[in-house]
């Protein structure tokens, strides 16, 4: 963990404020620009730190956007983490609140009806693609392929057939994985 002078902390905050409105499809879409700024231009953190931030956010519970405060933390400790998280969320959140209220009050107009109907199949396709991309690394790993395939299939079946809370399935996955079975 490092510390940065107040001027650099402000620059970090402003940089995330501007990236916020560009992060269509999620904060991960601006990761290449964050890499350029943090690692290449400013040299606040190293290459390995950047990869670690993304891996940690994916392993930890919660939204993947949390790789952003980890970058801030690596560069400037807790103040950096807070500045990064507030910066990346504030503009997009205010815009989303305004747009969703605007849309909700015009729910029955042809344009808004068409918007939600036209987007729905694209959304479903993207969720299938996400499932595929998450499963793919296991298919290319001969040592764990069969165990992982069983775990993926069982999880999907239990989710479709029961009301079991996800945390129990995740716990079973963690235990089987730690034991080297899956």
């Amino acid at each position: 963990m490092n510390t940065l002078p107040a001027g650099d902390l402000l620059a970090l905050f402003l940089h995330f404020l501007t990236l916020s409105l560009l992060s269509i499809g999620g904060a991960m879409s601006t990761a290449p620009e964050m890499h350029r700024y943090f690692v290449v231009e400013r040299g606040w953190i190293g290459e390995a730190d950047f990869t670690t931030a993304i891996a940690l956010a994916q392993a930890a519970p919660g939204p993947n956007v949390l790789f952003v405060p980890v970058l801030g933390f690596q560069a400037a400790g807790l103040p950096g983490a807070a500045a990064a998280l507030v910066g990346i969320l504030l503009p997009s959140t205010l815009l989303s609140l305004g747009v969703s209220r605007w849309g909700a009050s015009r729910r029955d107009t042809p344009l808004v009806r068409a918007f939600t109907a036209g987007l729905a199949p694209v959304t479903v396709g993207l969720v299938f693609a996400t499932g595929w991309l998450l499963a793919l690394p296991f298919l290319g790993d001969p040592a764990h392929r069969n165990g992982a395939l069983v775990l993926i299939t069982l999880t999907a079946l239990v989710t479709l057939r029961t009301k079991l809370a996800p945390i129990w399935m995740i716990l079973v996955g963690a235990l089987l994985g730690a034991a080297g079975i899956a």
Binding site: A59, T155, A156, V172
Partner: peptide, 17 residues
Amino acid sequence: ALRGMGAVAAGLILAMA
């Protein structure tokens, strides 16, 4: 453990789809 949790996450997303 992280690998096992990743496989469960993939299963959850596919069921949701």
